[in-house]
Simulated scan of single mutants.
Amino acid sequence: MYKKITSILIAIFTLVTFSGCGNKSVNSDKTISEQSSQSKIQVAVSFNAIREFVEAIGKDKVEIRTIIPNGTEPHDFEPTARDLEYLSKSKLFVYNGAGMESWADKSIQAVNSKQLVAVEASKGFDAIKSTDEGEIKEHGQYDPHVWISLKGAEFEAKNIKDALEKIDPSNRDYYEKNYKDFSTQLNNLYDDYKKRFDTVNNKNFVTGHAAFAYLCRDFGLKQNSVEDVFAEGEPTPKKMADLIDYCKKNKIKTIFVEDMVSPKVSETLAKEVGAKVEKIYTVESKEDNKNYIESMKDNLDLIYNSLK
């Protein structure tokens, strides 16, 4: 890992050095649209959900680049030299934290930018601790999926708002209004589904990987999953047998799967217990052209209907 980081650093310094040559000619040839783009706050974000939160608060005051491409599993990602180059030129870097982006701290240190404000969006949130010793050793002690929770999204959005106000205090009222609007949408959705989930007796559902603990905490639900919090490894025969028993005992009618987790085991499980397979969103990538609110509403609809 040390050699890899070192090679990335050498590459980034080379890129920065070369990009520094001929700056005058580059600037003098900028179009009006490029100059307008430069007047916006340059923001780097780790993955899609964080991008959506920054976009909701910053709107036309920010220009955002997402480091982890859509369709890439965030748990396994390593940034490229080009990613670090962009990070070095950004004013704000927003990442989820809680162990989600293992590369974030090293990348911040690598670029060593005095202008960069780094925001761990989940910092200060009441995080759920892992009980798996292997996961704790490899990924840290917390479940990182804070954003898959309406309350978690509101918390992360506030941290983002505070950072934008610090960087751009002249537009404080603008960011405050956008945050309140986004917060209202989140709370309206929460209130609606809290009432619905309170009416069902069955609180159990099954997912492809254990990404929904915070959503469960929001609504008093319980998830059981084919794969662990970090979507690693297939279940052992004993785990599979336990899942089959669990599904039968709790009358599970739906097995939920996510885009970036292999559906094969979930499909096998569904066949064993006579359940159907439905897609659910983790919002790590942009899926089906839906925004965060739309994706979470779909998730809550699907889960609620599976429990009735």
Rank of each mutant, 00 (worst) to 15 (best):
Gly152Lys: 01
Ala153Thr: 01
Glu154Gln: 15
Phe155Thr: 03
Ala157Cys: 14
Lys158Met: 11
Ile160Ser: 04
Ile160Phe: 10
Lys161Tyr: 07
Leu164Pro: 02
Glu165Asp: 11
Glu165His: 10
Lys166Trp: 11
Ile167Asp: 04
Asp168Ser: 10
Asn171Trp: 08
Asp173Asn: 15
Tyr174Met: 09
Tyr175Asn: 00
Glu176Arg: 09
Asp181Arg: 01
Phe182Gln: 02
Ser183Ile: 03
Thr184Ala: 14
Thr184Lys: 15
Gln185Ser: 13
Asn187Pro: 08
Asn187His: 15
Tyr190Lys: 13
Arg196Ser: 07
Asn201Ile: 10
Lys203Cys: 00
Thr207Ile: 06
Gly208Val: 11
Gly208Ser: 15
Gly208Leu: 09
His209Cys: 04
His209Val: 02
Ala210Trp: 00
Ala211Met: 13
Phe212Pro: 00
Leu215Ile: 11
Cys216Ile: 04
Asp218Asn: 12
Asp218Thr: 06
Asp218Glu: 10
Gln223Trp: 06
Asn224Val: 12
Asp228Gln: 09
Gly233Asp: 08
Pro235Arg: 13
Thr236Lys: 04
Thr236Ile: 06
Lys238Gly: 10
Lys239His: 12
Met240Leu: 15
Ala241Tyr: 02
Asp242Tyr: 02
Leu243Arg: 00
Asp245Phe: 03
Lys249Val: 10
Lys249Met: 09
Lys251Gln: 14
Ile252Ser: 01
Thr254Asn: 03
Phe256Gly: 09
Met260Gly: 08
Ser262Thr: 07
Pro263Phe: 06
Lys264Pro: 00
Lys264Leu: 05
Val265Ala: 14
Val265Ser: 13
Glu267Asp: 12
